[in-house]
Amino acid sequence: MQTLNKGNNVVIGDNVKLGENVTIGNNVVIYNGVEVGDYCIIQDNVVIGKQPTRAKASILPDSKELPPTIIGKGVTIGTSSIVYANAVISDEVFIADLATVRERVTIGARTIVGRGAAVENDCTVGSNCKLETNCYITAYSEIGNYVFIAPCVVTTNDNFMARSKERYDKFKGVTIKDGGRIGANSTILPGKVIEEDGAVAAGSTVTKDVNKEEIVVGSPARRLREVPSDQLLRNQ
C-alpha cells in the first residue's frame, strides 16, 4: 500500500509517479511526468523536473521540451535543491541542500552530491562518488566510479573564455576515470583527463592529462610521485 507523507504548498504535476513511502517536504514542486522511486525523501523547497531556460545571449541552441526526470529508490534530495528535466538519478543517491543537477545528467547509485555543488548539463557521474561542498562539474564532463572531488574544485570546458566563434564546436568537459581524486580548490582545465586512480593535490591547476596512479601537485600541476599502493582503489 502506498504511503505518501506530504508537507504544505506542494505542487505535483500531471502523470507524476510516486513510489511507496515517499516523504515530501513543504513548498516542493514536481513537474509533469516525473518518476520518484520508493522510500525517497524530498525536503523543503525542492524543484524536480524543471525545464531549462535559455538566455538570449546564449550560444547554445534552444531545446525543445525535455523528457521527465527519473529518480530511483531510496534517494534523498536536500532543501532547496533543483533537479532539471531529463536527469536520471540512480538508487540511494544523496543530493545535499542547495545543490543543482542540470538537464541530461546521469548520476550513478550511492553517489553523494554535496551542499551547493553544481553538476552542469550533459554530464555522466558514476556510482559511489563523492562530489563535495561547492564543487563545480562543468558541462559535458564524464566522471567514473568511486571518484572523490573535494570542496570548491572547479572544472572548465571553454579554452577560449567566451571569445571568438571558433569555440562554438570545441567545448569539452573533463574526464575523471574510476578512482580519480581531486583535492580542495583545484582547477581542471578543459578537456583534461585524469586516468584511473590519478590524484590531484589541493590547490593545483591541471593543464595536462594526469597519468594512471600518479599524484600531481602545483600550478601548473606536475608529477610528484606514484599513488601509494594502499591508497589504490583495487586495494580497498
Results as ranks from 00 to 15, higher is better:
107 I>K: 04
156 T>V: 06
167 R>N: 14
168 Y>P: 04
194 I>V: 15
183 G>P: 08
103 E>V: 05
194 I>S: 08
201 A>Q: 11
130 K>D: 15
159 N>F: 08
150 A>R: 04
103 E>A: 06
179 G>Y: 14
118 A>W: 08
118 A>S: 15
90 S>T: 06
139 A>V: 07
187 T>Y: 03
152 C>Q: 03
208 K>A: 06
192 K>D: 09
175 T>N: 05
137 I>F: 09
185 N>H: 10
89 I>M: 11
95 I>Y: 06
190 P>E: 13
99 A>C: 02
96 A>W: 01
155 T>D: 11
106 T>S: 14
101 V>W: 02
196 E>N: 14
138 T>I: 12
156 T>R: 01
197 D>E: 13
98 L>I: 03
146 Y>I: 01
97 D>P: 07
177 K>L: 15
124 T>E: 09
117 A>E: 08
131 L>C: 07
101 V>R: 03
113 V>I: 14
201 A>M: 11
145 N>R: 08
214 E>P: 00
133 T>M: 14
113 V>N: 07
88 V>G: 00
89 I>T: 05
124 T>H: 05
123 C>Y: 04
177 K>H: 15
146 Y>K: 12
159 N>C: 11
166 E>N: 10
166 E>M: 10
96 A>S: 12
133 T>H: 12
130 K>C: 10
108 G>A: 09
111 T>L: 01
165 K>A: 13
191 G>N: 12
178 D>S: 06
213 E>G: 06
105 V>W: 01
115 R>G: 03
129 C>N: 12
116 G>K: 01
168 Y>V: 13
131 L>P: 10
132 E>F: 08
128 N>D: 15
112 I>W: 01
189 L>E: 02
90 S>P: 02
145 N>V: 10
95 I>P: 04
127 S>N: 13
206 V>K: 01
104 R>V: 02
189 L>V: 02
203 G>N: 00
156 T>L: 07
145 N>M: 09
126 G>F: 09
110 R>V: 02
138 T>N: 05
129 C>W: 03
211 N>Q: 15
204 S>N: 07
135 C>T: 11
112 I>T: 14
87 A>T: 10
199 A>K: 05
168 Y>W: 14
96 A>L: 00
202 A>N: 04
99 A>L: 05
126 G>C: 12
205 T>F: 00
122 D>G: 04
149 I>T: 06
143 I>M: 08
103 E>N: 04
209 D>I: 11
107 I>S: 07
119 V>I: 15
135 C>F: 03
214 E>H: 14
198 G>I: 11
97 D>Y: 02
107 I>H: 01
94 F>Q: 10
169 D>L: 14
194 I>R: 13
102 R>N: 08
144 G>E: 12
126 G>S: 13
183 G>Y: 04
123 C>A: 01
92 E>H: 14
